[in-house]
Structures are given as C-alpha cells and as structure tokens.
Design a protein around this nucleic acid. Structure first.
Length: 807
RNA sequence: GCCGUGGUGGUGGAAUUGGUAUACACGACAGACUUAAAAUCUGUUGAGGGUAACUUCAUGAGGGUUCGAGUCCCUCCCGCGGCACCA
C-alpha cells in the first residue's frame, strides 16, 4: 500500500464516466473554427486482444488530440474496425460459426480494452468495414472504377497461395512467400479482377514531393522503391526471315554496340509465334515447362545459376549495326517487367556476363572507363562509348540521348518509362470479403449492379472452406449466383470473387466524416470542411500496401470529383514497435506478451499512457520495461501529493521563468512528436516545485494543464480539487511569454576554456562588459595555472556562454 | 548490390546555429523512517588515477577542418528497415 490517497482505478472510472456523460468527445458536424483531423490506422480486431505495443500509436494521437482540443481546435479523432479478412474467416472455419460472430466478439473485447485508456474517440462515428451500410460504398467505388475502365478482367498468371487457396497481390508477398501463412507462392493463370494502379504510378510517385504530403523520409523512400520508376528506351529487334519483331527495354542503350545476343522470358509470346521456325522447339518447350514449375521464390529469390536455351534457327537484328544476334529463352528474364525481353550486353551487365561465360558467348566491350578491363566481371558504370560507329567518343549519357533520338526518328523505338509496381490483383477466392458487385449476363456481358441495388450483401453459406478450383465458396450457392441481369432482365450469374482485405481501408477515413450518410459516400460540404487528414499514425508495415492503395483510391476519387484534395494524409508518423522485456517481439509463441489490462489495473491508465510517451523516441523500437511504468507512476504520485502544498502565494520569479520555459518546450515537443522530452521537461519542473515548501496555485494549474494530454484522468481530478467546475479539457492551453522564458538572470555562469578545454566557471553579474569578463577570466587562479608563462594568441568570447583562451 | 536510417553510461535515452557530453528515468549502492519488510524520502553513481584539491580518458573506428566536434568534411566498420535476376 502506498501512504497516500491516489487511487487510479477510482479516479479513472469517475472521469471516463463524466466525459461520456458530458459528451466531451462528440465532434460537431461542422468544425467550429479551426479543425484538426487526427487518425489512427484502424485495427483488425484479432482474437488475441491488445498487447501493450498496440496502444502506443493511439496514446500519441490522443495526446495530440487533447492538446489540439485545449488549443481551441475542433478535433476529429475517430476509431473503427477493419474486420474483413482471413483471421475471422479461419476462426469461423475452425469453430463452425459465422465470421460475423468472431468479429463481434473481438470488436467488443477491443473496445473494452481501449475504453480503459480514456481515449477521446467519438464512438458515434464508429465504422466497421463489414457492415453492409459501409461496404455498399466500397462496392460503389469499385463500380466507378469499372465504369472508367480501371477495373478489368485478366487471365494472366497470378500469385497463388496453395494454403490460403486464393490469389494474392504482389504487395501481399514477402520474399516470394505468402505474407499471412508463409507458404511458397506459385504462378497460376486464373480469371481475376485487376485495378489499373499503374495508370496512377506517376502521380503516386510525384505527389510524394507535393506540399500536401509531409511524411517521414523512410516511408516516402519505401513507396518510391516500390513504385520503382525507371527511364530507358524500347528498341525493336526484327527477326530475320520473318515479319515478326520483339521489343527490348533497356536503361543502357549506350551499350548497344556491345550487344551480342538477346534473351526473352519463358512467357514471351514470340515463342509460340515462331513455333514453325524454331528448330529445337521441343527442347525449348521442355525448358519453359521446367521454368513454370518453379515457385516465385525459386525463380527470383535464389542467387541461382542462370540458365537458358537458344532458339535455334532464329536470329534477331540489332537495328544500330544490322548485326545478326542469337536469341535465347532464359528465366532470368521476367515476363512481367518491361517487354519481357532484353538485349544482352555481357561486357556491361553482370547477369549477361554470367550467362555469356556459362554458354561461351562473345563479350564485346563498348564502354571505356579508363583502362580497366573485364577480367573480374562486367563494367557496369557509365564511361566513354567506344567501337560504336558514329557514337564513339561520346559520354554514356550523351550517347543515350542521341540513340533514343535515332530510334524515334527511324521508327524503331524510343524513350520509355517502366515501373516495378504492377496493377493491383483485386479479387480473392475467399468468403469473408466484400462481394464484387457485378453480374455476368449471357446477353449483355458483364453488367454492374445499379447504385439503387447496392449493397450486394454477402450471403450466408454452409461452408466457408476455400476451394482449390480458383473459385470462391460463394460459387457453390446457386440461389445467390443465379440472378437476373439488371439491364435486360435475362438470366445472369453473379461474380463470386470477393475483394481483398485492403479494399475497405482504402477510403474509411472519408466515412468517419459522414458515417451515416445514406445517399452518398460523403457529403461534399463535410468533405471540404474536414479533409484532409492532418495527422495519420500507424505501423510502418503499411508503407507499400494500405498507404499506397489508399492514395491510389483517393486520387481516383479526386478525379471523379468526390474529394477535393489530391492526397488523403498530410502528415504521417509511424509507430516504433514495443518489444518484450527480453528484447524479442511480443508473441504468444515466446510467452512474453504484456497485457495492457494488467498494467492498467496495477499502475493506472495514466501511468501507462505517460510511460509509453516517455519511453523513448516515438518512431523507434524500444523494449517494454515494467520498472519504467513504475517510475512514471512515482512521478504522478508526486504530482498528486503536490496538491497539499498549494498556497495562495505570489509565484516566485525563477520558478515562473522555468514554468514558461516548460510550457514552450512541452508545446513544441507535442507538435513535433517528441513526447519523451516533453515528459522529462515536466519532470524537471515537478522536481523543482517539490523542493518548495509551498507552491503557487498558478504554477500548479499550469503543470496540470501541461500534463493533461498525457494523464487526463488524474489531472482532471486534481483540476476539480482546485475548485474548477468544468473539466480541464474545457479550459485552454497555457500561454507562455517569450520574454519571461528568456528573462535575464542577475547572475549567469560563464565557462572559461584554455585551448578548448574547460578549466573554470565564473559567476557573472548581468550587464558586465565583454572586456571585464575577459579580464576576470584571465585573472582566475585556475586559469592562471594553465596560461602563466605562455603567450596568449587569441581570445574568443561567446555571449553569455564562454570565454576561450588560446595559448 | 542499391536506397534509407541509426551507433552516446549497467539500461531506455537527453544535448537550438559547432559552445560545460551523459538532462530525465530505470537499475545499483549507502543512509533515514520501520520490530521488520514494502512504500516513501535523502545522498552517491561514465571509466581510470589520487586521502584530497585535482587530473587523464571517453559519444562505432581512423583521419581532417576549428580556439572548440556527439554535431561539419573524408575513409571505413556494425545494427535496423526497404528494394533487388527490374535489364
């Protein structure tokens, strides 16, 4: 037992009740004055419940939200649930219940846990992506994309997870494995719905630099890498004795006089086209069959030896020198990037070099980098072009320009931009997702469901089990599948694929602004009032998934006039992970998970909130420390006890100065996400106040206000004990005076250095001249010890800081 | 390999424009209170040397610029994250 009367459980319960009763968090429809939209990445409510790492970001946004409230902003700080997806579905399969049951149970548990923290969420705006009233609009957006030709069907080979039994997007792969279950992914041709995200590649890239975006460099860089823009040229290579040709893509056209062969991907359509001309067709087909059997991992990840088979009887013509070159099929060339074919320049490309060595192909140098030769491998840097007809003697970059010009003038190719990012494979063969709102009509073809008939509600099925057929479990519900065409009224079949996990989260931030609108996705005026999101906080793992997808959808919504901002999220901060006390990730597997419920019942929500703010830089991964929570709890205990020292006295001048400095520092630290130093600054003020026998009411008030965003319950309680009738959050953030914060002290310390080393410290009275200070410094006994008998070369004086003597 | 980011006590971490390195907190040690413990409070705590005044050395390593470098420049080493057979 502690020997004082601070009981967090009691205080926290009381104030949570009070705040709810007084609708403290109810956000006005229209902002009163300045608005601030602050958003957390909404959670997927899993069966595990929260561990102490999850709320770290929510605590940060709550600190900022309360800070902004106190500064007079209308703050929108909502919360909801991203509840479609595999875990709920797998739970349903295992327990033979509807996934809805799992979602409801988990949402209730999450909500109960979150409520203990006293977050400022306006629960009137809660949303759930699996609610038909919500996914109606997810389907609506899909239909708009489909109408604009941005959603299309494809039969190309796609990533297939044999364990989840569904297709995956490139973004869902991790090292060639399923991000969810770790199974190796295979390529399988299947009918799919694909969103043409590549149409937006340039805007997704360039707008990262626009004023609307103020993100951490790390996340911006990840998106740039993922989009992977590259500038090069496409070149037509004609086939000898044939009308066929194939295009190659290269960023190093300056090396083309060193091209000694070409390689095409196993998927390349040329092979079928030239079937009659390829002398070793069966050998080639064998090679392709072998390549197709490889998983994504085997084909891309391993630094394996390069293999290939020559297309015998086929010669390609290099348009620059009309030379015949041999053509190979090799699986080191990717069918899905560029043109699926490359010109090989073994002298200046490492992969081509390796391949040429293996198959004894000619290696011809066409770039000189100053004498160095290719004994150890290819020369891949830029240099001076040699043995390249008229281009010889040019620099690489100049040659690239002129060669591209030549290609364009002669109709043999030209400049071309390529992206690593692919279109988004948007359909899944699973049950628990938004149905794609289309029907296949025998007469009319593919028909969109009219807006008036949305949502297409997910039907109940007997079994949620996925199938191996590439069809979703919905395909088995014939009652549902067989429908009538909205256009002609004739028989039609519903699309049975569902949307991926990431669909609903692409636009949820808009719905919070107008959650109950039945007539449109969002009211235009409200959108203008509240968008865009001023601050967005969540995990860095979403850099190339959710954050990319949401930007893509937002830009589309901008194009069709639903939103007025080009970007959805202005400032973005990523939360650093909280590791377990043993330094590993928190996981059931290691049995090192700390449950926030336990921490809160032992030390209080305020202590936990303040600790997570204090533990270190926000974006950094840091290990949990229960002792750290105890330390912060001691701090709160002392703030509590300080109430008994309050007296109606004049505020001491020195303390007042410290208080103003603290206000200034805490304000700027909150704005800049430096919560750790904000807390330590308050601790310093607290330590100072504790040394006093009495503390002025004004100082205490200010301390409570500064602490309120971090520890809202205890501060509101103490605020009330000061005699205030209204919540501390109805009050306003203390202002600081620059002149008080920077007030000159009567005495200040000056450091005296000799040759850069600190040798003495002088107490100087305000107003002393530079000359006098220098004289005092030289006169000091300690200094004399170091300078006597030596010549003084120079004296540097830094105002109010130091005197540096050079001997 | 390319890109980004970081390296400071026993631990988490502080440090405006280059200006007293190690704030704040944890842990540890000693003391007060207590029958005792917990809680609380007080003091000490970068490392080495010295009874002490004091002094030397320390911000991943090595150089450089400067009166003065955790901070700026060069060359390395290591950790973390992203991309990667992307032509």
């Amino acid at each position: 037992m502690r020997n004082h009367d601070y009981n967090p459980a009691e205080v926290e319960k009381k104030w949570q009740k009070n705040w709810n009763a007084s609708n403290l968090y109810t956000v006005p429809e229209k902002p009163n004055g300045k608005k601030f939209y602050i958003l957390d990445m909404f959670p997927y409510p899993s069966g595990e419940g929260l561990h102490v790492g999850h709320p770290k970001g929510y605590i940060a946004t709550d600190v900022v939200a309360r800070f902004k409230m106190l500064n007079g902003f209308s703050v929108l700080h909502p919360m909801g649930w991203d509840a479609f997806g595999l875990p709920a579905e797998n739970y349903a399969i295992k327990n033979k219940v509807h996934p809805r049951m799992a979602v409801e149970k988990n949402v209730a548990r999450y909500k109960q846990q979150l409520e203990k923290f006293g977050f400022t969420y306006d629960w009137n705006r809660e949303i759930d992506t699996t609610d038909p009233n919500y996914y109606k609009w997810t389907q609506w957006i899909f239909l708009q994309m489909w109408e604009k030709g941005l959603a299309f069907q494809s039969n190309e080979p796609v990533n297939w997870c044999p364990s989840c039994k569904t297709v995956l997007a490139n973004e869902d792969l991790e090292d060639g494995k399923c991000e969810r279950c770790g199974s190796e992914i295979t390529q399988r041709p299947l009918r799919q719905w694909v969103l043409k995200m590549t149409d937006y590649a340039d805007r997704l890239l360039y707008d990262l630099d626009s004023d609307e975006i103020d993100w951490e460099e790390m996340i911006v860089e990840q998106q740039r890498n993922w989009i992977g823009r590259s500038e090069g040229v496409e070149i037509d290579f004609a086939i000898e004795d044939s009308d066929s040709l194939f295009k190659v893509y290269t960023t190093r056209v300056d090396t083309i006089f060193g091209c000694t062969y070409c390689v095409i991907a196993p998927e390349h359509k040329l092979i079928e086209e030239l079937q009659g001309q390829i002398e070793n067709y069966s050998e080639v087909m064998e090679y392709i069959a072998l390549a197709n059997k490889k998983t994504v991992l085997q084909r891309t990840e391993l630094q394996k030896e390069k293999t290939g088979v020559e297309l015998k009887g086929i010669k390609a013509i290099n348009p620059f020198n009309n030379e015949e070159v041999r053509v190979f099929v090799g699986d080191y060339v990717l069918g899905s990037y560029g043109t699926g074919a490359v010109m090989a320049v073994p002298a200046h490309d490492e992969r081509d070099y390796e391949f040429a060595k293996k198959y004894c192909l000619e290696i011809r140098k066409s770039i000189d980098v100053g004498g160095r030769d290719m004994e150890d491998g290819a020369i891949t840097e830029d240099g001076i072009v040699i043995d390249s007809a008229d281009y010889s003697g040019l620099t690489s970059s100049e040659a690239r320009k002129r060669m591209a010009d030549w290609l364009e003038r002669n109709g043999k190719g030209g400049l071309k931009v390529n992206y690593k990012m692919r279109d988004w494979v948007f359909s899944r063969q699973r049950y628990w997702g938004e149905p794609i709102p289309l029907v296949h009509c025998e007469k009319c073809g593919i028909v969109g469901i009219p807006e008036s008939q949305l949502p297409v509600v997910l039907p109940n099925v007997k079994s949620y089990e996925p199938t191996d057929t590439g069809e979703s479990p919905l395909a088995a519900i014939t009652d549902w599948v067989n429908t009538t065409c909205p256009t002609c009224g004739g028989p039609a079949k519903r699309e049975t694929n569902t949307m991926p996990q990431w669909g609903g989260s692409c636009w949820y931030y808009l719905r919070y602004i107008d959650p109950k609108n039945e007539n449109s996705l969002i009211d235009a005026d409200k959108e203008k009032d509240w968008m865009n999101v001023d601050l967005y906080v969540g995990g860095a793992e979403h850099a190339t998934r959710h954050l990319l997808y949401a930007r893509f959808w937002h830009k589309f919504l901008f194009d069709i006039g639903v939103v007025t901002t080009k970007e959805p999220f202005h400032k973005l901060m990523h939360v650093g992970l909280i590791m377990a006390e043993d330094g590993r990730k928190m996981s059931k597997r290691w049995n090192n998970v700390v449950n926030p419920d336990d921490v809160i019942s032992a030390y209080g929500a305020d202590a936990m909130r303040t600790y997570e703010a204090f533990m270190g830089p926000f974006t950094q991964a840091i290990a949990w420390s229960t002792n750290g929570v105890i330390g912060v709890r001691r701090f709160l205990d002392r703030v509590w006890r300080l109430q008994y020292k309050i007296a109606d006295i004049e505020t001491d001048i020195k303390l007042n100065k410290l208080a103003h400095q603290t206000i200034k520092k805490v304000s700027s630290d909150i704005e800049n996400f430096r919560f750790n130093t904000a807390v330590s600054t308050m601790m310093i003020l607290m330590n100072e106040l504790e040394r006093q026998t009495t503390v002025s009411r004004e100082l205490y008030k200010n301390l409570l206000l500064l602490l309120a965003p971090f520890a809202p319950h205890i501060t509101d309680e103490l605020w009330e004990r000061l005699g205030n009738k209204e919540s501390i959050f109805k009050s306003s953030w203390p202002e600081y005076s620059e002149s008080i914060a920077n007030q000159e002290d009567d005495l200040f310390a000056i450091v005296v250095q000799v040759n850069g080393k600190v040798r003495d410290q002088l107490e100087i009275t305000a107003g002393t001249t530079k000359e006098d200070i220098e004289r005092l410094a030289l006169a000091s006994e300690k200094i004399q010890k170091f300078i006597s008998g030596q010549t003084i070369k120079k004296i540097v004086y830094v105002e109010k800081k130091l005197v540096s003597i050079v001997v």
